[in-house]
Every structure is written in C-alpha cells, then in structure tokens.
Design a protein around this nucleic acid. Structure first.
Lengths: 120, 120
DNA sequence: CTGATTGTGTACTGTGTAGTATATAGTACA
DNA sequence: TGTACTATATACTACACAGTACACAATCAG
C-alpha cells in the first residue's frame, strides 16, 4: 500500500461510483469544488503523494457523501475537534480511551449507547 | 501567552521545583538527559519556540515526574497511542468523544469508573 | 474533423518542524 | 583569580508538508 493507507484508492472508488450517475464527479470538477488543482487530486487518488490537509479531506467527505472520520482515519489523522476535546481534559479522556482500546466493538458500542440515552 | 500555550512556563516551574532538592535539575543537565541541546531547552522553556516533539515531551515528563498526557496537551498535542486507538475504530470513538465532550467532569469520570470496574 | 474535456507528468514553491552549533555573558566556589 | 558551570543569543540546517503552474496525450461529443 503506497502512501497514506489506502486513502487514495478509497477516494477514487467513491468518486467513480458517484460518477456513474453524475458526470460532474470527474476528477477535474471535483478538484475544483474542493479547492485543489486537478493534478494534485490525481496524485492523491493514485497515492503518489500523502493525503491532503484536514480541511480538504473534510470538503472531500462532504462532496462524496462519505464519513469524514473514516476518511481522516484512512489518511492517518484524527479530527481536530476531537483532539481539542481530549486536550481540554487530558487525564480523563486519555484514561477512558486507554481502557476501551482493547475492548471488543460491542462493548464500546454499549458504552456509546448507554451514554447517549442513559440518565447521566 | 507566547508559543505553545504555557508549556514552557509549566516545564520551567516543574524543573525549578525539582531543582531545589536536586542540583542535577539544571537546564543543561536536564537537557542532556532528555537528549537536546541546552540552548534549545532554554528557548522551549521561555516559549521562544514551539514545544518539542512528542518523544522529547515524553522523556521530559518521565524526568520531571509529570503526567505525560497533561504535558502533551499543553503542547497542543495528543499522544500517538490514543490517536492510533481512535483511527482503528473512527466512527465508534468519534461518536463517543463527541457525546462526552460537553458533559461535566463528574459525568465523564463516572463513565470511566463504570468501564473500569464494571462487568462489560 | 475539431474543439472541449479528461487524467497525468514534470518542475517548482513557500511554510512548518525539529532541531544543532557556536558564541556570549553572568555566577559560584575554592 | 581562574575555572567550571549556568543560561541565553544568534545563526543556520535538513527534511516534511501542502500544495501550484503548466504542458501533454488521450478521449468523447457534435
């Protein structure tokens, strides 16, 4: 896997899917909508360069209708707003994440749900 | 506040406290132990340059007996191991953190505790 | 056929990161 | 008095990041 953990391939596939029903999802037009040069997006999609900045990734996710956190993860990044939240209470969040990181998905999901609709 | 959100001041204060009972906490000797030039640590402590890399911050925290997550937070960073954990399950962790980020400390702490000694 | 549009190749740029190297000036002590 | 240590000032470096600018060959639509 070249640069950036499959990010490029993922974006290209998503774009080509969107393109079937909508020719405005050409590389050039999409590049213009997210605010980069076509040659740059081309290199990104082929993994010839590292994934772009968070800002461009967010615009890409919006444009393609993909989950921005997943796209950022593929790019090896973590959303700034999450980082800010963690930095505001480092001990608390660090402790929580380190406890959850080795637990299976269903356990984490249970926590998420209980927090969402629990009486906290 | 100059560069890096009070990081330098915090480090200097911690070092000077340590230094009272132990002269090996001079700027020069500490710099050598963590593996940077004295001039660089000086600039860091005075906020003249941005905080150092995560690696140096971790060694600094160890040397000074401070919480590394707090030090990293002051430097505007989030520990790599936490970022890796989040990137492995982006939707899950992103969702959880966004739900908790506006809750009061005691609520988050309750979650941490229930996860720690609960039957999950 | 032609004119527009598509994706790609090559070369270059400014800014940030994470420091080193060396010189200088003050202080403590013996 | 000198030598050993202290902090700081100044100058510089190597490399990564995040792109732009422009030329090019291929393809498709009318």
């Amino acid at each position: 896997m070249g640069m950036g953990g499959g990010f490029g391939r993922y974006v290209r596939d998503a774009r080509e899917r969107r393109r079937v029903g909508d020719p405005s999802f050409s590389l050039r037009q999409l590049a213009q909508r997210i605010g980069v040069e076509p040659s740059f997006l081309s290199k990104v999609e082929r993994g010839e360069v590292a994934p772009p900045s968070e800002e461009k990734i967010l615009r890409l996710a919006r444009e393609l209708g993909e989950d921005s956190d997943v796209l950022l993860a593929l790019a090896g990044k973590v959303s700034m707003d999450l980082q800010v939240a963690i930095r505001k209470r480092p001990e608390l969040f660090a402790g929580l994440i380190r406890q959850l990181k080795d637990m299976p998905d269903h356990a984490v999901l249970r926590v998420v749900r209980e927090v969402r609709d629990g009486e906290w």
